[in-house]
Nucleic acid binder design. Structure first.
Length: 826
RNA sequence: GGGCAAGUGGCGGAACUGGCAGACGCGCUGGACUUAGAAUCCAGUGGGGCGACCCGUCAGAGUUCGAGUCUCUGCUUGCCCA
């Protein structure tokens, strides 16, 4: 094969080293080591079939960090696996008749090949795939531990139900209120579902966030908002004419006397009791109203659609004023939030105000600004705190005091108490799908709900199940459903729901530590050795879901003693930015996907890796660019050519020793080597990972080497060239390894210590001081770094241009910033 | 509607702590080499002015000897929530 003049054979080299690293298991992380441990982790991918350069950005960042830390003397664990259960496999089965297991295995094979093609240094001996019985067995095992602890439970809950396909749909599968597959209107239906009681950990999940200083602030904020803790009070309205209470939660107890209606959800249980007292006309209207809301998603009800409601014909009794308050069923109060009922205070709540206007309900102002006098009718709700009026003996109090006083009064009456409410709801893990972990529960006519004993795990997913996209697939498999009760031996049926795939991914990082353990999901010893994850890298789209679920699992495991130390799994989290092409996300439907295979073939993966790290800081969105990558190809070729003269030369035993600089040019070259090394080390240890600046320093270094290439006898030039493989090793691992070998080394460059930045080499003999007059640069003087203030001003005043700008004016002030500038104010 | 982040040459970006704005790369221009192209190397490249100089980091104000960086107001874009 012919190569263009001045370029190196990246195809052969990259292939050669990928094979050799694998043969030598170069990146295997020993459990026992004298070095400090470092756990580097990227979010495990779903095996969708093909990697593109967008995926590569994530893995390149993680790989650069892992390689840097290895060269900085850490025992680095850098594992990889597959989030292999999930919907796409099932869709392939439905649309093309593919077997989900075979389809997934095939994709894993291809993507594992492509990850190797990236040159990423993973410890493949620890690889996991969540769809394998060896893995999901422990999923079931963990479910049973949660079940024992009362944290997994089954209850009725409204879900998205497609009446045509006879199945539950995930929220993401509901498009504009319709089933994404058959376009039938989706209904909300109450079904019995499995939940995990994450709300039991709400406060700890919230408090833990304060300690996570290695997480992006906006991710922590998002989790705080998601948990949505609010302090207030829960109290009861008695329903007139029935022996029933309606509980209400509010953070604004100070507005209690402003209540003009009681708003309840269309699914509120009290409606059943009301049927007995309201007219049949009202009852029919309520039923029709509830039905009209059935297909509406939460988003539509609370935000998109106009607020609607209907008077039930029933009244509640205000707990303090004893006034009659009409009960309305509304679209904007949701059964699943809080108590499913809110007190309607139009004067002091925007939503209630809007609703009251529409239905001509009275607006009673009970809080006024403490600084201003009340004036006429409100144009909009006054939602701030203030001073109470028209509130019996609470009038005149501040909002803050009134909240306490009213809470005490309600408590004394036995009608309420202070309470805390969360936006966070329990995690629905039931899926009526095939390609997931079977929930290990059996239903027995005599014993009821019975957990499958540990020694009967795993409950295997039966093969060859016909998938038509309708109903619950496992429910159609008689051999699966029909079983015997573990307790009494009588006939029983198995649970046919499978688990949400977020269940598997909530603890996978622990299985890497002990992937072949067949007695436990991991041993406490291994967890103690490796946890927690020092650096976790993945997309911001998981800021709440995956990262919150994992924290929940980890706290539970910590409580059980299964993990020790910190009760947070991820010490540091980094979100990489998107990679776009022509400003758009890469996708098959847009036809703008840049594949790994074609990139490896056309430019090489070292160039691709350098480009991905160089084009923007890693957390920013970046754009794929053919021109951009050709710039990195040029850099690699220039590195190669700089090194070529040293191939097969006698090995310089002292290559690591800092040679003395004979002149300014050599001093500059030496400095450039160490500036690049310092940048790489600093960007890693600061966890800023702005390797774009590090690679720019490498550009500068190579520029200097190119300029000085004539000086063949220079020890400094030889030193600089021999440093190149080490400097670029974390970013362009293949060319680094090849150059290292050609320099006569027989061990891997990736096991070498990184170049230690040397203070002497970084120091400068002279600096340029900027001389300003009135803040404008008028001269630059080259001086020794140690120059004193008086001496600096003396030299500055000798500059003709400085003098001309002073020109007889009076010097009012002199500012001296050592090493930077001096400023003369006249 | 609310919250957060960000706006720097033709383009991606650098300037991390208030101290030379535009490092480095892409693109472009000129030159060397070459039959020619590609590749490579060298030089130039924010705007204006012959020039000393002047202007310049979304817009406007402020703090400061000094602001891309800090404060306030507004605009635009992105993300998250509603």
């Amino acid at each position: 094969m012919l190569f263009m003049a001045g370029s190196y054979d990246f195809r052969t080299i990259e292939h050669k080293w990928q094979s050799r690293w694998e043969r030598d298991s170069l990146y295997r992380a020993p459990n026992e080591s004298d070095k400090p441990k470092y756990y580097a982790l990227e979010m495990l991918p779903y095996p969708s079939g093909d990697l593109h350069v967008g995926h590569a950005k994530n893995y390149t960042i993680g790989d650069a960090v892992a390689r840097m830390m290895r060269m900085l003397g850490y025992n680095v664990l850098h594992p990889m696996g597959w989030d292999a259960f999930g919907l796409p496999a099932e869709n392939a089965a439905i649309s093309r008749g593919a077997d989900p297991a075979a389809w997934t295995t095939e994709n894993i094979l291809n993507m594992r090949r492509q990850l190797r093609l990236l040159g990423a240094g993973y410890d493949w001996s620890r690889e996991i795939a969540t769809c394998e019985p060896e893995y999901y067995r422990w999923n079931q095992w963990l479910f049973l531990r949660l079940y024992e602890a009362g944290l997994a439970y089954k209850r009725e809950a409204p879900v998205n139900w497609c009446p045509h396909d006879q199945t539950v749909l995930a929220n993401e599968q509901v498009v504009d209120g319709r089933c994404w597959r058959c376009q039938h209107l989706v209904e909300r239906r109450n079904l019995s579902q499995w939940f995990l009681r994450i709300t039991a950990y709400a406060d700890r999940l919230l408090e833990g966030l304060d300690k996570l200083t290695g997480w992006p602030e906006r991710t922590r904020t998002m989790q705080r908002n998601w948990i949505g803790r609010s302090e207030g009070a829960t109290f009861a309205f008695r329903v007139e004419g029935v022996d029933a209470d309606v509980d209400v939660f509010t953070t604004r107890l100070d507005t209690l006397y402003g209540v003009t209606f009681l708003a309840i959800a269309a699914e509120h249980p009290v409606l059943k009791s009301l049927e007995r007292i309201v007219s049949s006309e009202h009852a029919a209207q309520i039923a029709a109203f509830a039905e009209s809301l059935q297909s509406k998603s939460e988003l539509e009800r609370t935000s998109l659609m106009e607020k609607r409601g209907i008077f039930t014909g029933a009244y509640a009794i205000h707990p303090l004023s004893r006034e009659r308050v009409p009960i309305w069923v509304t679209s904007y109060v949701l059964a699943e939030y809080g108590t499913g009922a809110v007190m309607g205070v139009p004067a002091h709540d925007e939503r209630d105000f809007e609703f009251a206007r529409k239905y001509a309900l009275p607006v009673v102002t009970v809080v006024v600004p403490s600084t201003a006098q009340p004036d006429g009718a409100l144009e909009q709700a006054y939602v701030e705190d203030g001073r109470l009026i028209a509130s019996e003996e609470f009038s005149g109090m501040s909002s803050e005091r009134a909240r306490d006083a009213i809470a005490q009064r309600l408590a004394a009456l036995g009608r309420g108490k202070t309470s805390v409410n969360y936006k966070l709801r329990d995690w629905l893990i039931s899926r009526q799908r095939y390609w997931g972990t079977p929930i290990p529960i059996v239903y027995c006519g005599a014993c009821g709900e019975v957990p499958v004993p540990d020694d009967e795990l795993p409950v295997l997913l039966p093969p060859g199940v016909p998938l038509r996209g309708e109903g619950s697939p496992l429910a159609t498999v008689r051999e699966f459903v029909e079983t015997t009760c573990p307790k009494c031996g009588g006939p029983a049926r198995r649970e046919t729901d499978t688990m949400d795939t977020f269940f598997e991914s909530s603890w996978y990082y622990l299985r890497y530590l002990d992937p072949h353990n067949d007695r436990l999901p991991w041993s406490t010893e291994r967890a103690a050795q490796w946890m927690n994850v020092d650096q976790y890298i993945g997309g911001a789209e998981h800021a709440v879901l995956h990262l919150l679920y994992s924290r929940f699992f980890y706290k539970f495991l910590h409580d059980r003693g299964a993990v020790r130390g910190a009760d947070e799994p991820f010490e540091n989290v980094f979100h990489q930015g998107l990679l776009l092409r022509d400003g758009e996300k890469m996708s098959k439907s847009r036809g703008n996907v840049v594949g790994i295979d074609e990139t490896a073939e056309q430019t090489g993966v070292d160039a691709m890796r350098l480009f991905l790290l160089y084009v923007t800081p890693p957390e920013e969105t970046s754009d794929w660019s053919e021109e951009g990558i050709s710039g990195r190809v040029r850099l690699l070729n220039r590195i190669w050519r700089a090194c070529e003269p040293f191939f097969d030369a006698p090995r310089d035993g002292g290559a690591r020793e800092l040679p003395p600089a004979r002149n300014a040019a050599e001093k500059a070259l030496l400095r450039a080597v160490h500036v690049a090394a310092k940048s790489a080390v600093d960007e890693t240890l600061s966890r800023r990972f702005h390797y774009n600046t590090t690679i720019a320093k490498l550009d500068e270094l190579v520029n200097l080497i190119t300029v000085s290439s004539g000086a063949a006898d220079s020890r400094v030039a030889a030193y600089a060239v021999r440093a190149l493989p080490i400097l670029v090793a974390p970013f362009a691992p293949h060319i680094a390894e090849e150059l290292w070998e050609r320099f006569g080394h027989t061990t891997s460059v990736h096991l070498e210590p990184y170049l230690q930045p040397d203070a002497g080499a970084l120091a400068v003999d002279e600096i340029t001081l900027v001389v300003q007059v009135n803040g404008k640069v008028r001269a630059r003087i080259v001086v020794a770094p140690s120059i004193g203030e008086e001496q600096a001003f003396a030299l500055a005043l000798e500059e003709a241009n400085v003098r001309s700008h002073l020109d007889g004016k009076e010097v009012r002030k002199r500012i001296y910033v050592p090493g930077k500038l001096l400023n003369i104010v006249v």
